[in-house]
């Protein structure tokens, strides 16, 4: 049984048919990436999975439970965490306060402190800036914060929306290395990326989304060698 199963999901923006029957699965312990161009429906798929958008048709099944009926905030306690696009840190709160809010639904106070310390171990940069306002940090630091904050909720599935967006290449490497490491510690990750080259390097499997439909799916290393993927998303002629 997969951890997450998206089953023939249709979603609309008004009259625009944004998702035309998207189906995908994520097994426990995998990194699965969803790649595609602008407007392919990547973010819409994620919004549907996290309950920010209701699918008109189809189901999202997480851990044997149909979760499409729940409102957005209820998903966190069920074990789904999201790193929003454009990072979405609380700009006016400090790094530490951001992390504390990430653990908002948890009740084990003493462990939260430990987990915050663990976040600082993962990104020492954050530890140095724990009292600094999140909004005054660089883009890379904010992305680190967004990732660790999502982990603070102790999720079983981590959804990431374009973690490489707007970051310098050196920072993209740092973030992707971190994703790999989080995954090695047992976290299941669904990664939505435009940077197909990086995403396919760390992922186990990949889906290619085009105008609201999955057009291709395979192991990541196979996709990397696929001529159409190479031409369309990897810039290799």
């Amino acid at each position: 049984m997969p951890l997450l199963e998206v089953n023939d999901v249709h979603a609309y923006y008004g009259n625009i048919h944004a998702l035309k029957g998207v189906s995908l699965t994520v097994e426990k312990g995998e990194i699965v990436t969803l790649i595609g161009g602008n407007g392919a429906g990547k973010t819409t798929t994620l919004r549907t999975i996290t309950g920010l958008m209701k699918p008109r048709d189809g189901h999202v099944i997480f851990d044997n439970e149909d979760v499409s009926k729940y409102p957005a905030h209820a998903w966190v306690s069920r074990g789904i965490a999201m790193v929003p696009e454009g990072r979405g840190v609380f700009a006016k709160l400090s790094v530490e306060e951001n992390l504390e809010l990430g653990a908002f639904h948890r009740n084990d106070k003493e462990n939260i402190k430990d987990d915050i310390e663990k976040s600082y171990e993962m990104f020492p940069r954050l530890g140095e800036r724990r009292t600094q306002l999140a909004g005054t940090m660089s883009g890379g630091e904010q992305q680190m914060l967004a990732v660790t904050r999502a982990l603070m909720s102790k999720p079983r599935l981590l959804l990431m929306d374009e973690p490489s967006m707007g970051l310098a290449p050196v920072l993209v490497d740092v973030i992707f290395e971190a994703i790999e490491r989080i995954n090695q510690e047992g976290m299941t990750v669904l990664l939505v990326e435009q940077n197909a080259h990086m995403a396919l390097q760390i992922a186990n499997r990949g889906y290619v989304l085009q105008t609201g439909q999955i057009v291709l799916t395979d192991k990541a290393d196979v996709l990397q060698k696929d001529p159409t993927v190479q031409k369309a998303y990897l810039g290799i002629e």
């Binding site: 209820a74 998903w75 999201m82």
Partner: peptide, 19 residues
């Protein structure tokens, strides 16, 4: 704290599991 999160960013607050 819940209010503080909503004041700063409503969408992200929801993503943190805040009703």
């Amino acid at each position: 704290r819940r209010w503080m999160a909503i004041r700063e960013d409503e969408d992200v607050a929801a993503a943190m599991g805040i009703n």
